[in-house]
Design a protein around this nucleic acid. Structure first.
Length: 211
DNA sequence: CCTCAGATGGACT
DNA sequence: GTCCATCTGAGGC
């Protein structure tokens, strides 16, 4: 699993490198394996969108100052949780928000957690929208406030480089502005959102044009 | 495909 | 009292 050293680095580097890695959750003895597809970086020192901007310390934000690999979970809009991996060394407020994953293994359990239904019964729409959002992935992986201040280097929640069942996957990383932070003035335009984009197989292969 | 209203509660001023 | 690092279902096209 990725260790503390991985997370105790520059936040933008950690954010970008997390894309394509595998987030693993153990829940009641079963595993849910997911591939990270979308993240955003938040850096307190220079980022008005960060909950701990400019050294702000409150009961909620104090976890952002913890050592890299610490888990920061908060409630948003009164209904959903958002999960972050704290980065940099203790004392520096910064984190990476997990915005999207693809469930690779443990789909039955994830479907139950998210929809209270069997995977087999889900519509295509529900399968597609299983965990492609920060609130959605927390539901699908059973991440709650109880995980706040825990660690991403634990047996119940951790991230690995590769997953055996998956071969090498060709992808690119797309950078863009972060979502839902219109209030953050100049930070609104920072390109701190990183998305996994599958590389398309060569299109020309089977496409022939006849005159 | 799209847009939009409404749900809902904790953190902070 | 105000503001959210969101999601869903309904209705339009």
């Amino acid at each position: 699993m990725l260790n503390k050293k991985f997370y105790e680095r520059d936040t933008l580097t950690v954010a970008e490198e997390l894309v394509g890695k595998y987030l693993i959750r153990r829940y009641q003895g079963q595993y849910i394996v997911s591939r990270i597809t979308e993240v955003e970086a938040y850096i307190g020192a220079i980022d008005k969108a960060c909950h701990a901007y400019d050294g702000k310390v409150t009961p909620r934000t104090k976890v952002l100052y913890e050592q890299g690999s610490t888990c920061y979970v908060y409630l948003i809009y009164g209904m959903y949780y958002c999960a972050n991996v704290v980065t940099e060394e203790k004392g520096i407020a910064s984190a990476v928000l997990l915005r999207g994953v693809d469930i690779v293994e443990g789909k039955e359990l994830a479907a139950n957690l998210r929809y209270d239904k069997e995977w087999i019964d889900l519509s295509a729409y529900q399968k597609k929208n299983m965990s492609n959002g920060p609130g959605k992935l927390c539901n699908a992986l059973a991440i709650t406030k109880a995980d706040n201040e825990s660690s991403f280097c634990s047996e119940d929640l951790f991230i690995v480089d590769t997953w055996n069942e998956h071969g090498e996957i060709d992808f690119e990383i797309e950078k863009g502005p972060r979502i839902g932070i219109e209030y953050a003035e100049e930070a609104t335009d920072f390109l701190w959102r990183f998305c996994l984009v599958e590389k398309k197989a060569s299109k020309t292969k089977n496409v022939k044009k006849y005159k």
